[in-house]
Design a binder for these strands. Structure first.
Lengths: 153, 153
DNA sequence: TAAAAATCTACAAGTTCTATAGAAAGCATC
DNA sequence: GATGCTTTCTATAGAACTTGTAGATTTTTA
């Protein structure tokens, strides 16, 4: 399960990516548009900024905007900003200790060997799909369903 | 991250699968052999029993044993016994509510569409590999490393 | 200087995870 | 049928994490 943080982040970034005519976005605006608790979104956008996904400026006329194009922002970079490196076991994590306290031999650990495959499988999906891909797919799905609806009616 | 529960479960089951000469195993024995808190392991084995992975008998001469052969126990069935159905978002879960409270249209939700791919990628790994596969791979790795060590020395 | 907007610090309720303690129930053997 | 072995059940407790909220502070523009 990814956290609400990650989901809110994806929604906020999708909103910004979809609304290309605007130069910058207020926290309050994004919060209202995507139905995200404003104070919670504050912290989320701050994290996204620290990860180089968003840029911001204070003061009147300020706000947040995408630091890169939607096609250059992977789903993985968003999720990892909040979930860490998504290691299924500590010994597969680069950021943390890197060892499982209960494990005597990581090199031959059956769990670790199998989980490494899981980690790779997840990465191969989330590091490939971009914000632009996700929006395009959602839009495609929306049109497909509305056409289906037309035929049904 | 999978929980300690899942890791302990895998260790306990691996121990039983590796030790084929024994008919049944005491909780205390498995706990000592794999360095798992005994009282914690109690609850874990109980869960594995409820999932049809273990069988047990009380009283003298009793204990736990594998309900199926190691080749017929998938890693997925073990992990799911403790982590639920591993849905990356609530709307992809079969067991729980099945809806994300913050989502207005699940059918076209960009997050859901992408996460469904993640879920499928994870499942394709963990539902394929069995306890027997894991043990074999670990053993293979152990021998490979010991050979490497021979050459080094 | 005043207003706008992001940023920082602190906190709080709820949930989950890891584990422990002690009692109860079922089984085999003497 | 008593005794001891072993699983099973119930209750609890601390720690960590998640999801928010509140209020003060800093930066920027006009």
């Amino acid at each position: 399960m990814i956290s609400m943080r990650s989901k809110y982040a994806i929604k906020a970034l999708s909103y910004m990516a979809r609304t290309r005519d605007k130069e910058s976005f207020l926290i309050a605006e994004v919060a209202a548009a995507e139905n995200i608790p404003k104070k919670f979104l504050e912290a989320i956008l701050l994290t996204l900024k620290s990860q180089g996904i968003l840029t911001s400026r204070k003061g009147p006329g300020g706000g947040y905007w995408l630091a890169r194009s939607p096609g250059a922002i992977t789903l993985g970079s968003i999720i990892r900003a909040f979930e860490g490196d998504l290691a299924p076991v500590p010994c597969l994590s680069e950021t943390s200790s890197g060892t499982c306290p209960e494990c005597s031999d990581a090199a031959t650990c059956a769990t670790r060997l199998a989980m490494a495959d899981v980690q790779k499988a997840v990465s191969s999906v989330i590091d490939t799909v971009t914000l632009a891909d996700m929006i395009e797919r959602s839009e495609f799905e929306r049109q497909r369903l509305s056409q289906q609806l037309d035929f049904t009616i």
